[in-house]
Nucleic acid binder design. Structure first.
Lengths: 250, 250
DNA sequence: TGCGCGCCTTGATCCAGATCAAACGCCCCG
DNA sequence: CGGGGCGTTTGATCTGGATCAAGGCGCGCA
């Protein structure tokens, strides 16, 4: 099952997407995700100070926010859109380690360089902070630090859940867990609905679940044929939550 | 390749090991891992205060420190020995999410309950702190909080590396990465040597790498036959680092 | 000294999911 | 309105690693 060394078509460098970051006119005041992001723990005054340090950027689909190994001199807070976070092997095999949703902080690297690459699945808007400035700001705000620590711990728990999925679950279980997980994540950013948006392509799902695109396609269509889900453009409607939960087997 | 639903023999509840935690006579003063653990960032006075809150425990081999889902009312700092951290599926499939070495803090859960189980691979000694007391202590010590955040971020990066391994690497690559990784981890706790100690059994390695015990055994013996490693009791001596690095293919 | 029990190794066979190979559908563009 | 490209689906076949099945080996215990 494991993808063999021969170069896979997984990685796709941003093609046409020109990398000309544009300044954003908006302010932290009207940031739609402030209450859900780490910023939620800051006072009004602190928000004001923070805005002075931030550097809002937009990214087109497929454009990359940063790449693995690059010097991590900026920290990004996603305000809208979705990004895929991934690691590559030299021969092109790719593992997506997560999909970032609005409110998430990216690139808070434990090392000097980014541990993974990130690029835009949909158009993305993010606040960028110079790393050193950001670290200095955090250092004098223990409540923010605590919040960031909590967020990182939650991320870690999620990563461990994914390790269980990648190491021990069958293809069908992976798909079901993925859909259920996405539903829950959308719910936490306010989009709670049995219709789960899937802005990423099949190849992205495959690279997230440690499968091939064919296995993902077949699995999804089988679930649909069996009436557990309904495939809709750019998403899936969960029809039989009962059965889904049973298939997830946890 | 994925282990199918039928119950696997992976999980082994502590059998004879009686769970009678004993008080330890030692103090933080002579803690051999203080300089490598998060405690390293504390002043002499703080160490003293912390000791008052700690509650040293010993665990016999196979004895469990805590189990997934249990209310997380204690936090453990490993001072000696090795623990395996794992998650189980209802049917018995097991994924080891990590091996804890001295200096690591366990159970700093993001939720009210433990996200994984932990038990002793070798005899283990750990400092236990009541959760609430510990959190209160940390809350007034931003430098400690920062250190914990760094440690958690490093853990997260490791988990992402493991996701790449589980999702995209071949069995042989997984083994090589594991050995190289263990060597590095031992080095960071002061045991730097081409002979890598492997106190855990083959089944543990298999459950960490998302493989079966047979595949691990065959892989290790093949590497030995080919001269890349030498199998020794409770460990492995790395002979051909050159080749190993090539096989790891990163 | 011998016995039994946990591991670990080794061999034979099987199968879930990978790989190879076509289409298909849809949207954008000319 | 037609064509071409990209993402997806579907079918046929292959295979890495799982599963099934014996041994072997070392150590503690009687």
């Amino acid at each position: 099952m494991t993808q063999a060394p021969p170069p896979s078509p997984s990685p796709r460098p941003a093609p046409g997407a020109v990398s000309v970051p544009r300044r954003r006119a908006s302010t932290c005041e009207d940031c739609t995700v402030r209450e859900r992001s780490a910023c939620a723990c800051l006072s009004h005054a602190e928000i004001g100070q923070l805005q002075g340090l931030s550097h809002p950027l937009s990214f087109a689909v497929r454009e990359s926010l940063f790449v693995e190994g690059q010097r991590a001199d900026a920290i990004y807070s996603l305000t809208s859109g979705m990004a895929r976070l991934y690691k590559l092997l030299r021969d092109g095999r790719r593992q997506i380690v997560g999909f970032a949703l609005p409110g998430e902080v990216l690139g808070f690297a434990s090392t000097e360089t980014f541990a993974f690459s990130a690029d835009a699945v949909t158009p993305v808007v993010a606040c960028a902070f110079p790393r050193s400035t950001y670290l200095a700001f955090v250092d004098t705000r223990p409540h923010l630090l605590r919040r960031l620590h909590e967020d990182t711990a939650r991320e870690l728990a999620l990563a461990q859940e994914q390790m269980l999925l990648l190491g021990r679950r069958t293809a069908e279980e992976r798909l079901v867990c993925f859909l259920l997980g996405m539903r829950e994540r959308w719910a936490r950013v306010g989009r709670d609905s049995p219709t789960v948006a899937l802005p990423m392509g099949r190849q992205d799902i495959a690279d997230f679940l440690g499968l091939t695109i064919e296995t993902v396609s077949r699995g999804l269509n089988r679930l649909a044929r069996e009436g557990a889900i309904l495939l809709v453009p750019d998403g899936v409607r969960l029809l039989d939550g009962e059965r889904m939960a049973r298939l997830a087997a946890a």
